[in-house]
Nucleic acid binder design. Sequence first.
DNA 1: GCAAAAGTGTTAACTATACACCCATGC
DNA 2: GCATGGGTGTATAGTTAACACTTTTGC
Lengths: 238, 238
Amino acid sequence: MDFYKNEPSVLLAVDCVIFGFDGESLNILLFKRAIEPEINKWSLPGGFVQADESPETAAARVLKKLTGLADIYIEESQVFGAPDRETYRRVVSITYYALIDIHKYEHIITHEYEAKWFPLSDYPPLIFDHQHMIEVAKRKLRSKAALYPVLFELLPEKFTLPQIALLYEKTYDIVLDRRNFNRKLLHSGLLIKLQEKDKTSSKRGAYYFKLDKDVYKEKIMSFLRYLPSWNIGSEKDQ
Amino acid sequence: MDFYKNEPSVLLAVDCVIFGFDGESLNILLFKRAIEPEINKWSLPGGFVQADESPETAAARVLKKLTGLADIYIEESQVFGAPDRETYRRVVSITYYALIDIHKYEHIITHEYEAKWFPLSDYPPLIFDHQHMIEVAKRKLRSKAALYPVLFELLPEKFTLPQIALLYEKTYDIVLDRRNFNRKLLHSGLLIKLQEKDKTSSKRGAYYFKLDKDVYKEKIMSFLRYLPSWNIGSEKDQ
DNA sequence: GCAAAAGTGTTAACTATACACCCATGC
DNA sequence: GCATGGGTGTATAGTTAACACTTTTGC
């Protein structure tokens, strides 16, 4: 059985745009590249898809290896496969974006790799088309987060209303009316109020909330039935 | 320069989920497969990414070859790359979905290939994981169409309000209130009313509309700023 | 004249927006 | 006691949802 024998083969890579929110800005995790070519330049973490794994598995493996984290929210972003996108060989890259709780990462990080968080709004030049990958991932994240409450994946187990609001502001580059946004959140059924307060950012303290896991899963998994709302949401500069 | 030399390579394919709307149901175009393995079974149209082309270009090439149509709306759907997804060799497939005006297709079709439209709700068994590809494409189309008015790509230049409504109904498996839906459409700024009427489906006739291309492009291209609306739109059975 | 589809208008419920003040606390 | 960020309430506008009848015309 030797079908397809005249078809060209390619190297298949995965690259990951890892988003993290530190309470101030939305960040991406970049790595000093450890292999040739372009060694020591900033890049997205990536690797090659091995013979026994699917691309998704490869992305999860790369993330596990580089951040120590498993069970991370990963979403496919886009394939980058222009014939000349890398200099020396043809490599087709499938990009994923991951949403992680930056604090978990800080505890587990192995310092085997030179990695650094950069604000999404200000990161250094990257190799190949990695900057483009980030822009696409950002756009996909915005679309996804408009329909599903995925941004909670960026927050710790316990979080405060001001934190969520800031996260949405940074994700969409907008300024929200906190009063209205709070109300929307509280009415969503997603949040369970805790007694404990976060006193790190104010004297009064802000109540912690946690996710109602059941409601959250339902909303995350739900299959869209109807929503077309293409009259709103875009190009309205504040 | 012989970087990456120990990395495995794969065959890279593209498969296309071609959506078409015939005025009654939302359909997909399936082909009797012309090559081994699995020759003569129903499948999604596809092909291999060649050395000098990007996956997107490959998808466009396949569509052109099989349907005769160029300048079609194509969107990347998802990568299918489980190691064992094909029986004989490892092939990683990037799936795209295309939205075409079924009537244009009917004029241009070359009958070199055995192809047939099937309703999205009732198509024959397919090879490999192609059924899964269709399900994913449907989900992606729903999400996309919730934020951007892409479904107009499925309609002819001139279309009527009842046609659009039916298209949305078939896409989301819902029943719409035509009065409200009409109003929403007319207020969207997307439509330009023509004098001419379509008399094929009623005695009275329904006015034709065409797209306001400028408004349409703006809405299609627009970069999401804010919209989170994860309180609505899902799991509400009628 | 009647069947069959197209089209329209009104009210009620809801959601989003705009806006300003009090609260709790550490210093 | 005051500066700082946290939290709440209300009125308005806008949007969506629910609802039924009239229009047109080919037969």
